[in-house]
Amino acid sequence: MGSNDAVMFAGVSKSYGAVRAVDGVDLTIPCGQTVALLGPNGAGKSTTINMMLGLFPADRGRVELFGRSPEAASAAGRVGAMLQETKLVPRVTVGELLAFVRGLYPRPLPTDDLLRVANLGGLVGRRLEKLSGGQAQRVKFAVAIAGRPDLLVLDEPTAAMDVESRREFWASMRRYSRDGHTVLFSTHYVEEADESADRVVVIAGGRLVADGSPAEVRRASTAQTVAVALPYDGAAGLERLPGVTAVEVRGDRAYLTTTEPDAVVCALVERGLLRHVEVRGARLEDAYLALTA
């Protein structure tokens, strides 16, 4: 029982002094899912992940990985993780480090597969202190998957990466998750969650505020977008139209976020601003902003 689930949180809370970082979280992740934990800075993502891995104890509630304690799951070699704010140790080559980590696990990834998935081909002989920031992140990813863990946890893995490195990183992640492994990653980039996850869990103020496929989370928000050609005198004043919660100008169009598109369209007609109108459902980004506001 329970061992079909990779992760199980039941009523988990954690406070730092008077601040409740995680507040009564229930979450079950079946094996094989790729889950994005999405939330703004300070929402409780890292605290949730640290409790998931058994690095912080929960004040209340129960945390299980594969039906047992996080420590037991780690000891059995079922967990791999890329944590925030960890640095690699110096005076070791990439190859030596990976050989060491592989040796700790009962069924590690073959070295060739590991180097291919993590995109580390030419770096085997390089000392860790000589790596660039992006290369170091790839090595940390390789350390996380070296033992072929059933559950891979990535805490804001792309935080310090440029656009190209991020694209390559998610390609590596998908190569790993395709083989049936469970992956949980946290991010505050909405498009990463949209593109790379089967399921999005939105956390804000220490609570789960949405949980479903990217499409479901999008629909969970009643926010919609009304787009019109940018008025000749610019976007000034649009944010004061009845029902508009946000205005964004891109190119020659203005995008108005609202929960009452009818009222916004009427107001645009009254002011003679209704040109090339388009009304559509929220992007995941809009849903996310509405949910975490």
Binding site: S74, A81, Y105
Partner: peptide, 17 residues
């Protein structure tokens, strides 16, 4: 040094206790 760099936390998630 290894504790400050977070290396021991990474190791704590492997089968090495």
């Amino acid at each position: 040094t290894e504790r400050t760099r977070g290396w021991t936390r990474t190791l704590a998630l492997t089968p090495l206790r």
